[in-house]
Nucleic acid binder design. Structure first.
Lengths: 149, 149
DNA sequence: GTGCATGCAAATCTTTTGCACTCTT
DNA sequence: AAGAGTGCAAAAGATTTGCATGCAC
């Protein structure tokens, strides 16, 4: 749970207040580093934990703030509410790596941690493009669902 | 305009009716092969042409149908309404190629026509994944906006 | 004529906004 | 005490759904 201190420091460094609600949202995100969650899922997990009560709107506002300060990354998957996951701070300055597979049958989401888009980005940069980021989503059937169908 | 016959045949082959509204939507899509359009943009273009009048809801329903039969491809760009573009039928069976750059300043959208994700997909297929498709979106500043900023 | 497609109205779902109140600093 | 954050209600935007009518076949 030491990572909670990271977000506390980050908030302070941005002159943002360290509130219970912001910590509650951060805690959920820290406990779900492997899968991007929707605002609603985060809200439900906070409620379920019964440690703290808040409004869904606050979750939206906090996620928006966290996205702005680079604590999390927002992704829009096809036909679904936006999903949020911790941005891997250390790697942020080298190669992007926000790639996902999503199973169209069971909604299983699997992130990939190696990046194969950066070469394309460098090519674009040579042609005058700047500040490039990317989002890659691969959909299909995961091994379990592929067997059943 | 000969391509309109393609969608007519496709509709018939799927036991779907060839209606004026469906042809109007198809015409707009055929005239905009280079850029994915939103449902609203398609609707507006139909109105603007004044050749035909229809309801926005019908456009949604038709786009949904066209997506199901593989005539078009639907993409969700960050924070925007879904966009639709003709799926390149010929290439559909070989390599996917639905890649886009979107300028965060002027909303310019540029598709890429070569694919560099398929190798990753083949790797996944070896591990039991199936029916893989992908959507890649690169965002940043296009050359024009990069100069200004 | 039959039933798929459409138009219209209304519902749904996600996200945003306004405003008064509350808690961090 | 000041004002950033929050809760609540309501708005906004995109998309879907129900149902009666109309058009393709």
């Amino acid at each position: 749970m030491e990572s909670l201190n990271e977000i506390k420091s980050l908030l302070k460094s941005k002159q943002l207040r360290v509130t219970q609600t912001r910590l509650a949202v951060a805690t959920i995100l820290l406990n779900n580093k492997e899968k991007p969650l929707t605002s609603e899922e985060i809200f439900n997990k906070i409620q379920k934990s019964k440690k703290y009560d808040c409004d869904q709107v606050s979750v939206y506002r906090i996620l928006s703030t966290y996205d702005e300060i680079g604590f999390i990354k927002k992704s829009n998957f096809q036909g679904e509410a936006s999903r949020y996951i911790l941005s891997n701070m250390e790697e942020n300055n080298s190669l992007g790596h926000e790639h996902y597979f999503k199973c169209t049958a069971c909604n299983y989401i699997k992130p990939f941690h190696n990046c194969f888009v950066s070469s394309k980005e460098r090519e674009l940069e040579k042609n005058g493009f700047k500040n490039l980021k990317h989002h890659l989503e691969i959909t299909g059937l995961c091994p379990k669902c592929a067997k059943v169908s």
